[in-house]
Design a binder for these strands. Structure first.
Lengths: 336, 336
DNA sequence: CGCATTTGCTCAATCGATGAAGCAAGATTT
DNA sequence: AAATCTTGCTTCATCGATTGAGCAAATGCG
């Protein structure tokens, strides 16, 4: 491993020497509180000029070591492979920077061990706050961080020990289901019960979406058998295999499907292609997630877009107001 | 801004006190070179136990301040909104960690000023190395980093001052164009020249893809007019507007299109929907980029997948072999 | 037993930035 | 003119981990 050589970086001591002044003065000037420290304008300008000439860069490690707060805000994300998490991360970075915080992001690929490891690493980097996004065990992260006096906020999936900001999964799912049913009615003339594909039975979002899904069926007086629900995880392969197996089992299919994420949708579509009982056109699909390309290409695919800007705005609000209570903020998603 | 309160974190001095030993011994034990420092196994175990009991977390800032190399590797990415950059970032994180490096990632939203700002910040964090991915001005970043003795590698878009790892855009584009032409021939019976949509005229990838695009036309003896090339940037809105304007201008359209990224494809499809001269089915589209959902839903869309694992493998190879030469490694993309 | 070596630790300087405390020179007040 | 205040700096301890140097005790050797 040869990430090689740096010829001694310029420090405030070098600058002090060059300016014929003290390191203390240099520090005061460069971190902006030279007025407070009563440094003259001339000296401030001289130091600033020299710093620029020398291409001086602050040593954050040294600076942070001395300061009480790091202004580093950590975020743990499960994946980067879809627009939802992508936009969360991108907007989070922007908003954090706008608030003078330094965003530190880590992707844990839905691996619980990595999640904990990542939280631990963030603590080592003295983060002021950790956002656990779609974490498999958010409370474990909260406990770990709390022990170090670091607060956490759960995003996307709620926890019991820290404030959570999530989508209103129930309302979103109910409306999405209603729309799929309507589409089935309009296109196929029937209102058979839909199938629910993807997600983990244990996770809060999946449970709430299922509740909305069932409610919408009940609203229409449609009886929903348990076997219509296939909570096989989010991974495309899992969904594909699950549908395959169900196919083999001889249980009845419906042409209307509620799919739990674009990632799962990938597996569903693959299955439709390879082994679906009827062609793609003969399905009415709804997806609890949004992807602009799918919205454009999938004519018979309804989508729910989770309101990322609103979720992040709420999250930063919680941080700024120092809210520690394990409340759950449910943000209504946007339907298209 | 209240990222509040931490009750004095546990330090090696606290642990030393508890273990009845010195901070020096604690440090040696916890960072693994206690053998080298001739600490007895008993003491090592005692310290380790106490550290665990206390939930001790190393203060990276203090540790890094003292060490010569930070083992932090920075990556600058333009966007997270597509599978290409998403997989780059995700795999980069995994590979970096596997090599004992700490990945620090920043998204600059194709903003040149932010890119420079991000590079500067990374230097402050004492990164050992910076990967500039799809940077608008990679050489500027290289210069900045070089001044601090930090090496850089360009990914996706090449620079003149540091080693670059990019796709073989020429070969990929030539083959993709060939396929679109073949599809046009088969489906529409004609071999009219294609249109090229998206990218920036100045950027290396766009130029190389254009070269491949032209070459493929030449291979078939098809004359390609300049007006068929619309390098309007990558953003969907830009592409949509550009096609709209072209529509109004009365210039001839072709039903075959070479689209420069999935992001641009979004704009193209939107235009087809809203104002295209014929329906979507009547187009033969090729996209220099890959998205599994598009691959599944877009029947008449050919895709080129850039070989991210190979690109990153090559990149880490360059780092490990300490290669400083501004060579360009071209990685063949994968066609489907 | 006496000397050399090994073992197992501690001491103290150091990394670079920060900020409280202090100090000298000049300005202002009485 | 003496006392006080203000201005514009410098000095120095500090943050927590690391590491070269050093030292006492234990062990080995002749």
């Amino acid at each position: 491993m040869s990430l090689d050589r740096q010829q001694k970086r310029t420090t405030i001591y070098d600058l002090a020497e060059l300016a014929g002044t003290s390191a203390s003065a240099v520090s005061a000037v460069l971190n902006g509180n030279w007025k407070k420290r009563r440094i003259s304008k001339q000296l401030a300008e001289k130091i600033t000029r020299i710093a620029e000439e020398q291409g001086y860069a602050l040593n954050m490690q040294a600076s942070l070591l001395r300061r009480e707060k790091s202004h580093i805000i950590g975020m743990i994300v499960p994946k980067y492979d879809n627009r939802y998490f992508g936009s969360i991360v991108e907007l989070f970075e922007t908003m954090a920077r706008d608030k003078g915080l330094f965003p530190l992001i880590t992707c844990t690929r839905r691996d619980p061990a990595l999640e904990i490891e990542a939280a631990r690493t963030m603590l080592s980097y003295q983060v002021d706050c950790v956002i656990a996004t779609g974490a498999t065990d958010p409370d474990r992260i909260t406990e770990l961080c709390a022990a170090a006096g670091v607060r956490t906020i759960n995003l996307d999936l709620p926890g019991k020990l820290a404030p959570s900001v999530i989508s209103d999964n129930f309302a979103g799912a109910r409306e999405l289901t209603r729309r799929i049913l309507a589409s089935c009615h309009q296109r196929f003339g029937s209102m058979e019960p839909l199938m629910f594909v993807g997600g983990r039975g244990g996770d809060h979002n999946t449970m709430e979406r299922l509740r909305g899904f069932r409610q919408a069926h009940a609203d229409h007086g449609i009886h929903l058998e348990d076997h219509r629900v296939i909570a096989c995880g989010y991974a495309p392969e899992k969904a594909q295999t699950a549908l395959q197996e169900r196919s083999a089992s001889g249980l009845p299919f419906s042409r209307g499907m509620f799919v739990n994420s674009t990632i799962t949708l990938e597996g569903v579509l693959r299955w439709v292609r390879l082994a679906g009982p009827v062609s793609e056109q003969e399905f009415a699909v709804g997806c609890f997630d949004y992807d602009p390309l799918v919205a454009l290409l999938g004519d018979n695919i309804e989508m729910v877009r989770q309101d990322v800007p609103a979720m992040l705005a709420r999250m930063f609000e919680l941080i700024e107001h120092g809210n520690f209570e394990p409340t759950v903020s449910e943000i209504p998603p946007v339907l298209r």
